[in-house]
Design a protein around this nucleic acid. Structure first.
Lengths: 182, 182
DNA sequence: GCCAGAAAGCTATGCCAATTAGCCAGAGCG
DNA sequence: CGCTCTGGCTAATTGGCATAGCTTTCTGGC
């Protein structure tokens, strides 16, 4: 039995591929099959199914943070907020199952908490451009996060059944948010 | 073996009790144990685990719709919107696992679609008070739903880790929404 | 080049949830 | 009294997760 040359990174890659292929909850057996290995062999690389989910979550939150940071750099004010929100939605639509694999509550795990805090920092940096700091900034990030997360989640799961253009709805959401930041 | 006097309604009740007791995904075995019966016996009353989830979802969406309707009746304008949003959040906080058991995408099942449409009607009725109809009203309901769903979901799952008062953040969210409806 | 040990596969096994099949008790009706 | 239907049950299958323990392959020191 030749070695497959697996690493934790490769296992997470495989899980992400399955997620992108439409499998909303890949099992260990599926991931193992995808990399050409028997299921128990994965335990040599990742700490079980929940551990793999955790690694996937870390990867996804890092990816999303990078996208948001890239979108916000070089912009400010309403322009930056719009870029942030578009990047957020684009990511969710491009990788709906990856996004769904990201836990809402990253506390309790130091790695995830750090990653989430990095994401928060991006938003806070944009809000600083409005002169928003301290508690006001926190309340504003919650508005942004609630709206973006809610919209993206609903849209990715097919929650907007009616014919109206979701992009138009999203533009309205963005306008609503930027108006609340003045 | 004396009869337990089960009905589909009683089985759903038991599942809801487990959800309220903190079990985020009660198994058939758990539900069966709660009503004092062996797991396979449940199949005489509900069509399997996924069927039970479906019945639970129907019940929850009906409950939430009733709360929203009750909150909106006798109010109009910003007052009605605020009441709607408060009722929404209150329900999610009171029954977080019930809310999580409600599918985002009710289409594909006629019963659920009808229930969801009833919920939509409540929101549309409130928006009619602003003179919003047709596509504008749909876009507005999406803003409301995205914000309320996003905020409630995040809060119920412990997503707001920082110390700032979530109720204050929510008031800001409500103000943001009503401002967008003028 | 060789060998020891670590790393990375494997098979076998156990547990749990869901489901199906098929048996049995008892309540209600003629 | 007995028939039949309903709602329980036990037994057995399937599939996912996890662990134990064996075997093979690679690597580093000599």
């Amino acid at each position: 039995m030749p070695r497959a040359g697996l690493t934790p990174v490769a296992v997470v890659d495989a899980a992400l591929e399955l997620l992108d292929a439409g499998d909303s909850a890949p099992t260990l057996a599926a991931v193992a099959g995808h990399v050409g290995v028997a299921a128990p062999s994965l335990y040599k690389h990742v700490p079980g199914a929940s551990g793999l989910r955790h690694l996937v979550a870390l990867r996804v939150i890092g990816e999303l943070t990078a996208r948001l940071r890239a979108a916000a750099t070089g912009r400010s004010g309403d322009d930056a907020v719009a870029a942030l929100l578009h990047a957020w939605r684009d990511y969710v639509l491009a990788h709906p199952h990856r996004y769904a694999a990201m836990p809402v509550q990253p506390l309790g795990d130091p790695d995830l908490a750090r990653a989430a805090s990095g994401m928060l920092d991006v938003v806070l940096a944009v809000l600083a451009g409005y002169g928003l700091t301290g508690q006001d900034a926190i309340h504003a990030t919650r508005r942004i996060r609630a709206a973006a997360h809610g919209f993206a989640t609903l849209e990715a799961q097919g929650g907007f059944g009616l014919a109206e253009d979701a992009s138009e709805s999203y533009q309205g959401l963005i306008d609503m948010i930027t108006a609340s930041l003045q």
